[in-house]
Write a protein that binds this DNA or RNA. Structure first.
Length: 301
DNA sequence: CGCCTTTGACCCGCGC
DNA sequence: GCGCGGGTCAAAGGCG
């Protein structure tokens, strides 16, 4: 029931999450790593169009808004993650190849809100919940979500660097939102490349991981200074990337804060993001990638 | 009573 | 053209 569901969600807000994987995708360009996941959700685009045609009120629906999509992976024992929004379940299917049912939720915070989410357990690790948000909220986020979103966005301040943009010259995601405190760059997994040097060719490698540095702690229960693993830019310099990321990933608040943050950002600037992604493949890769083995989390299969 | 979940049916796109 | 699979609809029933 709804009450039980909410209780589960709340319960799982407090514990049980060990990490997450989060990605902001433009379905127009799909990396190899994302093929399977995107295959799982790709038909949504057409279905959303169909929904519009079938008379579902969707005052802000547009191709740009429809393409806003955020995928969040988090350890969660409950049926869903509580991200601060209200969701109504409108369907459930057992997808081929995954015995775990996929649940479909619609945002009910505001009537006609086009945002939907799909929730499915990871086949390879049943403790991981894959939540895919799609669409743009046409309403202010609830207090809880807004608080989490503002916390995460202001403190973590995600900057998306895509395959063709020079992070130093191109207005970034972070600059859109006027959160200048963070430097984020794609880091190659094996080579030592200074993110400030685009000539090194690190931009555009889909295998590269997005990492962020924050000028101060995120307000979570653990120190959450996000550091590049190899540029030694840390003002603290006393924690390895793995330790830092692990600390972040271990904090359940972070999971939901990030989810809410991205959702909020999309709500605010969905068109900006989408228009930017029309020429680029925006991908916010997992922050937990480096600790995925440890935590049992995996990147997109 | 209102809102929710459940669940079978239906619709549509895609591959063959 | 047909079958399959994913996504959505909507009726039915439950709960607070």
């Amino acid at each position: 029931m709804a009450t039980n569901q909410k209780e589960d969600d709340n319960k799982n807000n407090g514990d049980g999450e060990l990490g997450l994987s989060l990605s902001l995708k433009s379905p127009q360009v799909i990396n190899e790593d994302d093929k399977e996941e995107m295959a799982n959700f790709a038909p949504v685009q057409n279905k959303l169009q169909r929904s519009e045609l079938s008379g579902v009120p969707n005052p802000i629906a547009s191709p740009l808004n429809r393409k806003a999509r955020v995928s969040v992976r988090a350890r969660c024992q409950g049926a869903t993650m509580n991200d601060g929004c209200q969701w109504r379940k409108y369907g459930q299917k057992i997808a081929k190849g995954n015995p775990c049912p996929r649940a479909y939720y619609r945002c009910t915070v505001a009537p006609g809100c086009p945002v939907r989410k799909q929730v499915q357990r990871c086949l390879e690790d049943m403790s991981i919940l894959i939540t895919t948000y799609e669409g743009t909220h046409n309403h202010p986020l609830p207090v809880g979500a807004t608080a989490m979103a503002s916390t995460a966005s202001a403190e973590a301040s995600f900057m998306l660097v895509d395959s063709s943009i020079n992070p130093l010259t191109q207005p970034s995601f972070a600059s859109y939102y006027k959160y200048p405190s963070t430097i984020m760059s794609r880091q190659p997994s094996s080579t030592n490349i200074n993110p400030s040097d685009p000539s090194k060719g690190n931009i555009g490698d889909p295998s590269q991981k997005l990492v962020a540095t924050s000028s101060h702690e995120m307000g979570f229960s653990r120190s959450s200074s996000w550091m590049s693993s190899n540029n030694n830019a840390s003002p603290r310099g006393d924690k390895s990337l793995a330790e830092n990321v692990s600390a972040i990933a271990l904090d359940p608040k972070f999971t939901f804060a990030v989810a809410a943050a991205i959702s909020s950002l999309i709500a605010k600037e969905g068109e900006n993001i989408a228009s930017s992604s029309s020429t680029n493949n925006w991908i916010l890769e997992s922050l937990s990638a480096n600790t995925s083995d440890k935590k049992g989390l995996r990147q997109s299969p």
